[in-house]
Each structure stands twice: as structure tokens, then as C-alpha cells.
Computed example of a mutant assay.
Amino acid sequence: MQADREGGWLAAFYFLYFCALGAFMPYWGPWLHAQGQSPLAIGILTAAVQFSKVLAPNLWGWLAHFWGSRRIVPWAALITAAGFLALGLAHGNFSALLLITLTFSFFWAATLPLVDATTMDWAQRCGAAYGRIRLWGSLGFIALSLGMGGLLAHWGMTAFLPGIAIFLVAAWGASRYLPYGTLPDANAPRPRLSGTLRQVSLWFFLLAGLLEQASHGAYYAFYSIYAEQHGLGSAAIGMLWGFAVLCEVAFFWWGDRLIRRLGVSLVFTGAFVLTALRWGVIAWWPGLVWIILVQSLHAASYAAFHLAAVHWVSGRFPGALRARGMALYASVVYGLGGGLGALGAGWTWAHWGGQNTFAAASALALFGGVFLIQALRPAPTLEKEAD
């Protein structure tokens, strides 16, 4: 059946893309350290990856509006893989590493928002669930965040670049068969983005999402260190990370059904409240039992938030505008929000300590909820404008 085949290619792309990401995130810093980079240099190179998500998705979303995602995603995936391999040619030179990192990050940031838009279009056409396709990305992340450790233990850091590039090349292969929409007609009038951008609720939504994702900066940068300070060993910490992503997978499996039953607004609101609760419990009750329990809230702070956001954005950016809407969401919420959150968490950790850092993250998520309330107010029906 064609729909099953198309869904299989989408699931394969997510799995392979997040395999590469799951191998990259935990070991990028150690690989840079093995290349002789200082802590400051590692911070700059890590921030370069994060902040590339601010500009790049918007540019690629704009180009997809005219060229179609079919002409962009496969090339971007292939250049990303080549960029990873090119990092080995820098031989530890910081300037070369920075230039190559900016290049591969720029193309890597192109793929996921455009594929998300493609998946939502396909899901609506086929009556399928976005979450049940997207969960394969989470499974890929688990597989390689654990598996890459064993690979590096056997082969050393020399396996880092080719190990990731293999999955990126495979993702390129899968991207060639994704169910993209029809190519834009150069002579047809195109819907404008300006009407949507004038809506105040959109900017409340983006600000709320930015704050919610910024609150994760403490978790991604310092959770493992914080857990170690409270008596957990590395094996236990690894299991806690894996448990959190398994809870994320479970929500992606059932989340679309839950959104249909409860509505986007209620799921969104619950995600923000539970995110604040998660960071608050970690701050004030960091014992093992509570930490295990609140790790299950990753299903809310990431999976429920992202799934509700994708549905919300898809409703505000219909048809030909969807790729640009997803790109705007990715750049502001994950690019800018993630980058500012990481920087802010570093500052608060250095000046306020671990407990107050997670307390601040909890307050940040609650503050984001204030803007979310404004964003979820009913909006007037959008009228498509022609150029």
C-alpha cells in the first residue's frame, strides 16, 4: 500500500536522522577535547551548532516556498554528511573547525523542519498520526546515544566522524523517497506570510515556546553533573536519560489521539505546568525516587510540547506556508531558545549553584505559560492573500 510505503520512508528518515543526533550530542564535546580544543573553544563550537538553527531554517523555509522541499532536503542531507567528514581535515585547527561547523550546521538545520512539514501534510492526506512517525526519531536517538559509547570504547574517537556520517548518508538515501508535495507552480499566485506574521498570538506562542525550551538548558547541560553531586553513578544516570526518552516515545505513540480528545490548548497548558514541576522537583527534592519519577515528565516537557506545537503551527500555516511556519518555529524556539537557555544555565550554575539553576528553569517555564495563555486565545480566521 502506497501510504504504508511512504510512512515507512518517513519513519526511516527520522530514525536515521536522530541516530546521527544521538551519537553527536553526547560526544561532540569529548571529540573536540580530543582534538586539543580549550573549554572556551568547545563552548564556541557548541554554540555555533545551536545558533545556526536561528537563521538557517528560515532561509531554507523561504527557499522551499519557491523550490519545494524535494529540491532542498536531499542535497542538504548529503552536504551535512560531507561536512562531518570534512571536520577531520581541520586537524584540530580552531578556525577551520569553526568554519566547517558553521557550514554543516547550516545545512543540517534545513532538513528537520522541512521534513516535519512534509510529514504533517502526508498525515493529513492519509489520516495518519504524526506522532507515530516521529517516535522513530526518539528510538534512533536512544539507539545511538547508547550504541555510540560502545563503538568509541572499541575504536576510540577516530570512529566519531565516520560513525555519524554513515547515518547521515543513509538519511540522505531515505530523503530521496519521502512523500513531498507537488513542486510549486512558478506561475501560480502564492499565499503571503505577512498576514500570519501580523498576528500577535503567533509572537506570544513563539515567546512562550522560546522560554519553555530555554528552561531545558539546565537539563541538557548540567543534569548529569547535578545527579552525580547527589550520589548517582554514571550507569544510573545513563538509565535515567534512556528512561526519559522512552517516556517521550510513549507519548508520541498516543499523543495525537490525546490531542484529538483533549484539544491542543489543554495539552499545551499541561506541558508547561508539568515542565515547571519537573525542574522544581529536581531543584528541591533531588533524591533518587523523585528524580526517577520526574524523568517521566520528559513526555510532557518535550514530547507533549513539541507535538502540540506542530499541530498549532500546522493550523496557523496551512498548505504552501507550512514549511515556512515550521522553519520559523524551529529557529525561534529550538535555535534561539536552546542557545539562550544553554548560555543562561552556564551563568546561573557558575553564580547561583545547581539548585537555584533548576529553580530558575522552573520559573522560566511558568513565565512562558503566561505568554502561552495569550497565544491560545481564539484567533480570527486567516484569509489567504495573493501576491
Rank of each mutant, 00 (worst) to 15 (best):
P162T: 11
A90F: 00
G231H: 09
L183E: 15
T158H: 15
L152H: 02
C19V: 15
D4W: 10
L87E: 02
R132W: 08
G368W: 08
L232D: 06
R322M: 13
P113A: 10
G368Y: 12
I282S: 05
R316D: 04
L211D: 05
M148G: 00
W254A: 15
L366C: 08
G231W: 06
W352G: 03
F252V: 02
I133H: 11
G354Y: 01
W347H: 11
A350L: 14
Y219M: 09
W60M: 04
L307V: 07
A11Y: 04
R134P: 09
L266T: 10
A386H: 12
A82Y: 02
S362Y: 06
A12M: 10
A244P: 02
G131D: 05
N93Y: 07
F106E: 02
A227R: 12
G88C: 03
R134L: 06
W312E: 08
L297N: 10
L59A: 04
S362W: 04
N58A: 14
L102M: 10
I164W: 00
L211C: 09
W347A: 12
A170H: 08
P74V: 05
H230K: 09
L366G: 09
G354E: 00
H154I: 07
W284Q: 11
L232H: 13
D121H: 13
A308H: 05
D256T: 06
G344N: 05
L274G: 08
A236M: 14
W31I: 02
W75A: 10
G127H: 11
L144N: 00
